[in-house]
Amino acid sequence: MLSRTAENLYWTARYVERADCTARLLEMGYRMQLIPTADGGFASEWESVLTAAGARGDFAERYGDAVERNVVSFLVFDAANPSSIKCCLASARNNARAVRTALTTEVWEALNRAYLEFQELERTPRSELSLPQICDWTKRHAAEVRGAHENTQLENEGYRFFNMGHAVERGDNTARLLDVKYYVLLPTSDMVGGGIDNYQWTTLLRALSAHRAYHWAYGGDYAPSRIAHFLILNRACPRSLVHCVNAAEDHLTELSRVTGQRTEANDAAAALLAELADAEIGDIVHDGLHEFLGRFVARNADLGQKIADSYLFGKV
């Protein structure tokens, strides 16, 4: 397969996943601002949402105050913000369009529909649009693309690159999301505010659509270390770090079987996976959750780079 084709498929998936994650972040921010704080005000989580999106500086420069309307403008509609949902959908579609023949009609149509309907969304007066509506809309379209891909795409090399894009991007996003709220998962924060922290945990889980899944997996009780375990080390959780790395590693292994050559990307994925498999949540929290997540984001990015290098992405 042409490297460019693989690269475009990989990035199509990454951008779709990124749009989805941005929507989930916004949802989290939205829910959090609905809870009253102890001092009678409301918690503003928009700063942390922007931090998680890695765009705090850029935002402050152009918009100033982190109020809902501005944050939504920036993260949903802003053509100058490459991580906005608008830009992610456009980038996903551009990547897909360049390799149109490598995708089934259904996948293409799902992407194209998302792109075109977004333009309608843009034309709708903001007063008629609620943030939860926008978030649902985005998640639905992302799911449609992914679903069309699973349902119709031949499981060839291209399938692997597409899904690898999802895995790498999702791992990155879960880690960032967790990092924003890492302190609510620390043992000391248990004392801080009881009910409110409880709400923050559920919000985190809800944003990852893992709220009910958590209950199935761990029973009713919220405990910070269990939530951390669920989102980091539980392979069954489709957004956990280990799940994402595992998926990437699987696809790389399948690729090396087809191409007959193991690459440094295989090794990087295998090493990262082995490390996560051996990790204990107690140690992670003890040694510093924030530091752990920072390391993971860097290693995950390194995996992405090794994939690009191994399959000649972008080299001329």
């Binding site: 397969m1 042409l2 490297s3 460019r4 693989a6 090399e157 690159f161 690729l255 191409t259 007959g260 050559q261 399959y311 000649l312 080299k315 001329v316």
Partner: peptide, 14 residues
């Protein structure tokens, strides 16, 4: 891309 006497295409297998 051109290398030496020939032209090559970038593929996932090199």
């Amino acid at each position: 891309f051109v290398d030496g006497d020939f032209v090559y295409m970038r593929t996932t297998r090199g």
